[in-house]
Design a protein around this nucleic acid. Sequence first.
DNA 1: ATGAAAGCGCTAACAT
DNA 2: ATGTTAGCGCTTTCAT
Lengths: 375, 375
Amino acid sequence: MHLQGAYGNVPYTVKQYRTNSGISAVANTCTRMETLSSQRPTMLDVAALAGVGLTTVSRVVNGKRGVSETTAARVRAAIEQLDYRHDVQASSLRRLDRKTATIGLVLEDVANPFMSALHRAVEDSARERGMLVFAGSCDEDGGREREFIGALRARRVDGMIVVPAAPDHSYLLPELRVGTPVVFVDRPPRFLDADSVTADDRGGTFMAVSHLVAGGHARIAYLGADQGIATAEERFRGYRDGLAAHGLDVDPTIVRLGLRSIEDAERAAAELLADGRRPTALLSGQNYFTVGAYRALREHDVLRRVALVGFDDFPLAELLDPPVTVVAHDPVELGLAAARLLFRRLDGDRSPSERIVCPVHLVPRGSGETPPKTG
Amino acid sequence: MHLQGAYGNVPYTVKQYRTNSGISAVANTCTRMETLSSQRPTMLDVAALAGVGLTTVSRVVNGKRGVSETTAARVRAAIEQLDYRHDVQASSLRRLDRKTATIGLVLEDVANPFMSALHRAVEDSARERGMLVFAGSCDEDGGREREFIGALRARRVDGMIVVPAAPDHSYLLPELRVGTPVVFVDRPPRFLDADSVTADDRGGTFMAVSHLVAGGHARIAYLGADQGIATAEERFRGYRDGLAAHGLDVDPTIVRLGLRSIEDAERAAAELLADGRRPTALLSGQNYFTVGAYRALREHDVLRRVALVGFDDFPLAELLDPPVTVVAHDPVELGLAAARLLFRRLDGDRSPSERIVCPVHLVPRGSGETPPKTG
DNA sequence: ATGAAAGCGCTAACAT
DNA sequence: ATGTTAGCGCTTTCAT
C-alpha cells in the first residue's frame, strides 16, 4: 500500500485523497504544471485512491477475474468518486487485438429516409455490442467516399459498412488484408471481393413493369439515376428485361437517366407529360424521383390518369391521395443483415465473402393501379 | 542515418526496404512474432523507407514547417508506397491539446427526419474542419442518454451536441469543467448552465392558436408529448397562453398529453373525433403526432371539416391533400447554429453560456385554413 | 490475488 | 532542417 511519496519509480506531484475509511493516498502524475482540477483522472488516480496497483484497476475496469470482491468494490468506489472514465483510445493502443469498439458507416446521405433507417438498424446492432458508429454522407461522390473512409482508417475503426459511391473499391484491399472487415450494403463493391448485402434491384423493376403491363399499360416511362451507380444500372436492366419479357420495346424518348434530385425528376416527368404521345405510366427508380414524379403528375392534374410506381418505399407514401404504389425493400432488413455479417467477421469468421440478396415486395396502393388512358 | 541494427536504443527486428535512391533502411519494431505482412505500417516504417527520422515524418504528416521540400516529397512517397495511415488515437494521446477531431451528436433518433436533417447539418459543419461525428439515438430515454454520453466520454470526443432526454444534466458538469464543450440543441439543458440552441416553441403554438382563432375556431384540441420533455412543456404553454390571450378556456377533455408515437396520436385523435362535442380544430405538438392526426381525420372522413395545424414541418407535408399547415423551425438552421457555437468553444471562447432561440414560421398550406363546422 | 515494468504509435521538448 | 528522447494512459507479461 502506498501512502505517500512516489508510485513505482515514477515521480509524482503529491495529491491527497481522503477515503471513507480515513486512508489517504497519492495520485496523478503531473510533469507539466497545470491546475490539477482541470485534469481528467487516470487509472493511476483511481489506483492511488483505492490503495491498489494500476493493474488491479485495469482488471476491474475490463471485468477480468483475478480480483477479490472487496478490492473490486474499493476500486469501483474510487472510480465513482473521481468520475473516472476509461480511455478506450489509449486502451486500444496497447491491447493485443487493437479493437476500438467503433465501426464506420458510409452512407449516401444520413438525411435520406432510406439511409437513416438503415443507419438506425446498424446503430441498434452496434449498441448491443457496446460499439459506437461513425456515420457520414458521400452524396454519390467517390472522392468523398475515399476521404471519409480515410478518416475512418485514421481512427482505427474495427470494421465498416459501406453504401458504395466510388467506381472502384480495390483501394480497400490493404484494409481488408490488415484484418478490417468491410461489408457493402445496398450496392455491391466494384473490383473487390468482399461481403455485400443488396436488394433484388433488377427483380424489383421487372416486377413493377409486369404489374403495369398486367394493368393494361404498354407505354411505360422510366426515371433513373446515373448508370454508373450499380443499383441504378440493375434497376434499369429490370425495366428493359421486363418490357422485353412482355414483348414490348424500349422507347428511348420516354427514358430519363442520370437524374440526381427531386427537382430533376419533377422536370423530367413534366417534360414527358407535356408531350403529345405521353406515357400512360411512370416507373421511378428511386424514392426521391418518385416524389418528383408525383409532384409533376399533380401539377399536370393527371394523378389518376397516368399511373405511377416507385422503387423504394418512403414515409407517408400511403397517406398521399392516391397513395403511391411502390416496390419496397426494407432498409432495416438490409442494415441488420449487414451488421450481422460484419460482427461475424469481427468474431473471426474467415470464410469466403458472401453476397446476400434481400427480396423486394410490390406494395399496390393505388397510384400504380390506374388503368391506361390516352390523351 | 541508420542503415542497420537498432533505432535509438530500442531493439528491432531488421526489415529491409529499398528506396528509389538505392538506400536501404531499417524498420518496424516487432516484439510479438506475427506475420509482418498483416501489420499496419507505422511512422517508423515510413521513416525507415524514406531514410529520415521519425520526427520528420511526424512533421510532414501534420503539415508543420521545418522540412525541406525534397525531404517532404520523399516522405510522402514512402507514405504512398506503404499505404500508411496516421493513427489519430495515438496522436491525440501524446499531443498537448488531446484533440481527437471527433465530436458526439446525441439525438432522439437518427431516423427521425427532423433529427437526421439536423445530423446532416452538423456533419457538414464538422467535415469543413476535418472532424468526424459519432451520432446516436436515445429515444427520449434519459438512461440511454447517459450511457451513450459515457461512451462518447470514453472516446474522448472534443465536444458534444446534445438533444437532451434526461431530466437532469448536472452529471455533465465534470465534463464541462475538464474543458469539453457541450451545446444543447432543440431543448435547453436542465440543472446545468450550458450553451443551447432552441426554437421558439411557446411562440410557435401561440401563433398556431391565434391563426386558428382568426379562422373562426374556438374549440381547439391539443395533442402533445410527455410534459417532462422541455419542448413539449413549452409548446403546451403556448397553446394555453394562446387560448387565454383570446379569452378562451382550456377544455381538459380535448387535451391529450403524454403521446409517444404516430399510433398514440392517431388513437387520441380518433377518440376526439368520435365524441359528440368534437373539436373544430386539432393542434399537434410534433411531426409524428401530426401524421397520426392526419390519418385519423382521413379515417373519419373529416379532412376538410376539421382543421389541423402541426408543429414541425415534415417531408411531403405539402404533397398531401389537403396539404398540412405547420409551424416550422428549420433543423438545418438549428444544427448549423449549434455547430458554430461548439466550434467557437473549441477555438477557445470562454464567454458566458449562450441561449440562442431560432424563430418559427407559420406555413399555411390548407389543412389549417379549414373553417369551423359543427357536427 | 496483486504489482512492476515494458511498450503500443505517436508528439513535443530539447538537442544539434 | 533534422534527430533523440521522454512519456501520453493504458494492457500485457512476468513476477511474487
